[in-house]
Simulated scan of single mutants.
Amino acid sequence: MYKQQGFTLIELIIVIVILGILAVTAAPSFINFSTDARVNVLKNISAAIEAAAEQSYLKAAIVGAEKQSRSSAARPPEVTINGISMELKYGYPEALADAPAGGDILDLLVLSDDLEVCYSVNCSASNSSRVKIGYDTTEGTGCYVRYSEPGGTGAPSATMYGLEIVTDGC
């Protein structure tokens, strides 16, 4: 009696078709590695900003500056972090320091040169209450994290900072 050894052509074709279907459905999830990486970088920046803001608040609370609308070297009590005199609103760092020697939120972060930093909606650096950090800082459609100082545009209240992650353009 003759015994069959191996697979028939039909069986091989069925296996190839099934593997093809699996490859087509799984491939899109592997293609978006760069988007996923950028979104994760933004999440890490957001976490770093949150940690820096909370650190400054705790230091402000120690010296009694957490309830002041503004505190800096010119408006005591002064809060110094890493040798920098910080400009604070209700204990949290300002987005953009008014004084040239004053510290703001960016002075508490270490950022890659690959990232853009943009103040306000149109990226002008004059008197802004928010800063955007990311790969594309186009308002609303880019790929960035926005920090809003207390009382600034996008902040939840006059005494609390705001953080928003925009990933539409990642």
Rank of each mutant, 00 (worst) to 15 (best):
S34L: 04
S34Y: 00
D36M: 02
A37F: 00
R38W: 00
R38P: 01
N40M: 10
V41F: 03
L42H: 06
L42P: 02
L42Y: 07
I45P: 04
S46Q: 04
A47P: 00
A48E: 11
A51V: 12
E54M: 07
E54R: 01
Q55A: 09
Y57N: 14
L58G: 13
A60Y: 04
A60E: 08
A61S: 12
I62G: 06
V63W: 06
V63G: 03
G64V: 11
A65G: 09
A65V: 11
E66T: 14
K67G: 12
Q68R: 13
S69G: 08
S72L: 09
A73K: 15
A73L: 15
A74D: 11
P76Y: 03
E78L: 15
V79F: 12
V79Y: 12
V79E: 05
I81S: 01
N82G: 14
K89C: 14
Y90M: 11
Y92E: 02
E94R: 12
E94N: 10
E94S: 06
A95M: 13
L96Y: 01
A97V: 09
P100A: 11
P100K: 10
G102T: 08
G102Q: 05
G102E: 03
G103F: 02
G103L: 07
D104E: 09
I105L: 11
I105Q: 07
I105Y: 04
D107R: 14
L108K: 10
L109F: 11
L109I: 12
L111V: 11
S112V: 07
S112E: 10
L115G: 12
V117K: 02
V121G: 04
N122R: 15
N122S: 15
S124I: 15
S126F: 13
N127E: 04
S128H: 10
S128D: 12
K132T: 01
G134Q: 04
Y135H: 00
T137S: 02
T138Y: 01
T138E: 02
G140N: 06
G140H: 02
G142D: 08
C143D: 07
V145T: 01
R146C: 03
R146E: 12
Y147Q: 05
E149R: 12
G151F: 15
G152L: 09
G152W: 05
G152P: 00
